[in-house]
């Protein structure tokens, strides 16, 4: 036990969850600072979860104006024929989230994600980016890694009825509870760039097909200079061509990246709300684990597909053969 005690108000509000993770974890949560960029449905689910959990602060970044589409996927923004009266997504979400839990400091950071330097991220313990381009994922992850303190990095994407979470906790030590003893555990995470650079043929067999499919689509968007999700059925031919090239280069059988799966990712790029809820829930749980130091953290990819219903963890790191 360290630091000050929880207030009576906190104890009453957080009673049920303190029974899950303990007072110590609750105290650590209340001192943590989270940054979220990109407020699509999945990120919004995540924000709700960690504001309810009682983190210290949450900083939101998304300058996009409220569109009909954004409104449809967002339960934080009250319905408004004027589309939020000109406010940005982050500003409108901020108002609602403050209301969820007055004990959490929620604020907005304006600006383009790419404009934030290394120092900017030092203020945070956790950085989450939602629906970003390959370049942004690499660069924000690298910035987090340059800091002397550990800033946990997460990226989350949801398309159609499936999605992916990536986790980089760098070097992470935690106490693992066995039946009678507590063992010190240490995990070494690769960066996003390092992870995706691992040759596909050296990855374990039965790797989730979504992993490969996401890499193809990500690469396609980068090559074609598209925004995330800015793809359509017209792109399928080129996406398949890219798939074949990548499979050839990696000596991977093309059947590992089925056409149907790629088509789902390329054509229906909107999030499916139940899947956002699932991914936002898993991500929330992982962030709570990482902050509290309780429980085995996810290493280092998570995939969910509503079609088969499986939520799978894949360890894609340099250290594994």
């Amino acid at each position: 036990m360290n630091g000050e005690e929880l207030t009576e108000q906190e104890t009453a509000l957080y009673d049920r969850q303190i029974r899950v993770w303990g007072v110590d974890a609750q105290r650590r949560l209340s001192k943590s600072h989270i940054f979220v960029s990109g407020l699509k449905g999945t990120a919004v689910e995540f924000c709700k979860n960690i504001v309810l959990a009682g983190v210290g602060s949450l900083t939101l970044n998304d300058d996009n104006p409220v569109t009909a589409e954004a409104l449809a996927a967002n339960f934080l923004i009250p319905f408004d024929e004027n589309m939020g009266g000109g406010g940005s997504l982050a500003e409108l979400c901020c108002d609602s989230l403050k209301d969820f839990n007055p004990m959490v400091h929620v604020s907005v950071e304006k600006g383009d994600l790419s404009s934030f330097g290394v120092d900017f991220f030092e203020k945070f313990d956790v950085v989450v980016i939602n629906c970003c381009l390959l370049a942004a994922k690499k660069s924000v992850n690298e910035k987090c890694r340059k800091l002397s303190k550990r800033v946990a990095f997460y990226s989350v994407d949801c398309r159609d009825s499936c999605g992916e979470i990536f986790v980089d906790l760098q070097k992470y030590c935690y106490a693992k509870k066995k039946i009678d003893e507590t063992v010190e555990c240490q995990l070494q995470y690769p960066s996003f760039e390092e992870a995706i650079a691992i040759p596909w043929r050296s990855l374990p067999k039965r790797m989730s097909k979504l992993y490969f499919a996401m890499r193809v689509v990500e690469r396609f968007e980068e090559v074609e200079k598209r925004k995330p999700g800015e793809t359509s059925i017209a792109d399928m031919a080129n996406v398949l061509k890219l798939r074949n090239e990548l499979c050839l280069a990696h000596s991977l059988n093309e059947s590992q990246i089925p056409d149907t799966l790629l088509e789902r990712l390329v054509v229906s790029t909107k999030e499916f709300p139940p899947v956002s809820a699932v991914l936002g829930g898993i991500l929330g749980q992982e962030v709570i684990k990482a902050i509290s130091g309780k429980g085995d953290p996810l290493k280092n990819f998570f995939f969910f597909d509503a079609v088969d219903g499986k939520g799978v963890i894949e360890d894609i790191s340099t250290s594994t053969p």
């Binding site: 709700k48 009825s161 139940p274």
Partner: peptide
């Protein structure tokens, strides 16, 4: 008292809708 957290409920609700 049964322990309860928001995240599990959110995940389960998503799966119910699916």
């Amino acid at each position: 008292i049964v322990h309860a957290v928001a995240t599990t409920n959110a995940i389960i609700a998503g799966l119910i809708v699916i």
